[in-house]
Design a protein around this nucleic acid. Structure first.
Length: 423
DNA sequence: TCTGGGGTCCTAGGACCC
DNA sequence: TCTGGGGTCCTAGGACCC
């Protein structure tokens, strides 16, 4: 008998986090926009009811926004990250182990809690999160991660569950699975849904009943595992230790297109510096750097997209070295005459800094000097804000900087911006 | 005028080796 | 006339997720 798994996730998380500090957002449609205020990435129930979809470009729903007084906010990741800590603190006593799956979702290993009424247990957990953070949540319970995820979606969609769906009971599970669109199953995307749709599989129940060998043939091992999980056979466990990350990226769309190399390089230099900072904050070094940039693929204009990958040798987290390599790649890939709207720096081949292989003829003293320089840079930028101290190559005008015109304050992480309650 | 950012995993196919 | 087989490693690209 496997122990029950729960998935708890926050409803309209970014919107809910914003509402925690701004009462005027309650009861009205709210959307949080992606970087550059480009598209809607979180919608309150009221906004969903207006037909605003995930990923809708803001400029295409302007009419709706104005007609219904939709409040649009730029994303404030510092706030969402800090609120996540508080949500996790509320959840912690209710599970044996927690796997943080995303900024607003966690899998819980409920081993040891089986003897309790798990629905009541989950309701108590939701109440705790709500009380500590004002953020509403839903909980799904099942014998596998896929079923817990599916239960969670059911709890969200169907009010009869009152926020908690426990699908360990077979007849209830069958009832839900038979009504659950296969395209909404965790791991079934557009391509897979179309492929198995042709075979007459349209519900989660039908996918569960697909012969496992056929699943392997139609999809890959991924679909095979998914069918097993729907049948209640775990193909994955709640992972309690954070796995070593494999890559990291800093990529951005520009507020204004870049037409000359220096402007583009300014953005790329900043991303490379930021990537180095991220590496160092995780105690990692990278062995490979990729730099890319491209034109706006939605625009009816000449298109160009380029990327270059370079070895970082010796492996390093030195921001200035990353900038140097990124420049080399960008120079190589550069083509005149285009309006570039997005660029990025991606680091791969990551390992812990202390495991970094030493190379022959390494300039030990030089490396150490650089390490100290980076330490000082991190200290300055940590204390006075990102981008306080930067290499001159990032430029001074930074006209590529993203728009974020409707960003909420750093309510919880910046003393000058904490909310003030007046008597 | 204006369409996000950051991840993971899997597979196929080429290079290379013995 | 007759021209292997099997393994590893790496990369690019697809699919999917939040």
């Amino acid at each position: 008998m496997t122990s029950p798994i729960a998935l708890i996730d926050c409803n309209s998380y970014y919107c809910s986090a914003e509402r925690a500090f701004d009462g005027s957002l309650k009861g009205v449609p709210v959307i949080v926009a992606s970087n550059n205020d480009g598209c809607a990435i979180a919608r309150s129930d009221e906004a969903k009811a207006l037909g605003i979809k995930m990923g809708d470009p803001i400029h295409k729903i302007r009419d709706k926004i104005e007609a219904h007084g939709v409040r649009v906010l730029s994303s404030n990741y510092t706030l969402y990250g800090d609120m996540q800590r508080r949500v996790l603190a509320a959840i912690e006593p209710f599970a044996r182990d927690i796997e943080i799956y995303s900024i607003d979702e966690s899998f819980l290993d409920l081993a040891g809690f089986e003897d309790r009424d798990l629905v009541a247990h989950a309701q108590a957990m939701r109440a705790q999160v709500l009380q500590w953070t004002t953020i509403p949540t839903c909980v799904g319970i099942g014998s596998t991660k896929t079923l817990a995820k599916l239960a969670n979606a059911a709890a969200k969609k169907n009010p009869i569950f009152e926020g908690v769906a426990d699908l360990r009971d077979e007849s209830l599970r069958n009832w839900v699975l038979d009504r659950f669109p296969v395209g909404d199953v965790w791991g079934v995307g557009r391509a897979t849904a179309a492929k198995i749709g042709e075979l007459g599989i349209h519900t989660a129940g039908q996918l569960r009943d697909m012969p496992i060998k056929q699943a392997r043939g139609v999809g890959t091992v991924v679909l095979e595992r998914l069918v097993a999980e729907l049948q209640g056979v775990p193909a994955a466990v709640v992972e309690t230790i954070e796995p070593q990350r494999k890559g990291m990226a800093v990529t951005r769309s520009f507020g204004e297109p870049a037409r000359d190399f220096d402007v583009l390089m300014g953005a790329i230099a900043q991303y490379a510096m930021r990537a180095g900072e991220k590496l160092r904050s995780h105690g990692l070094v990278a062995g490979r750097l990729a730099v890319f940039f491209h034109t706006n693929r939605f625009a009816d204009r000449p298109q160009y997209s380029a990327s270059r990958t370079l070895a970082i040798h010796p492996m390093s987290s030195d921001g200035l070295e990353l900038v140097r390599l990124a420049r080399k790649g960008a120079e190589h890939a550069w083509r005149d005459g285009y309006a570039y709207t997005k660029a990025g720096v991606i680091l791969e081949d990551l390992i812990a800094a202390e495991l970094r292989p030493r190379t022959l003829f390494e300039d030990e003293a030089g490396t150490e000097r650089r390490d100290r320089l980076m330490e000082a840079l991190d200290a300055i930028n940590g204390r006075f804000g990102r981008m306080t101290a930067v290499p001159a190559s990032t430029g001074f005008k930074r006209q590529w900087r993203a728009r974020a015109d409707m960003k909420s304050p750093a309510y919880t992480t910046r003393i000058a911006e904490v909310p003030v309650v007046r008597a």
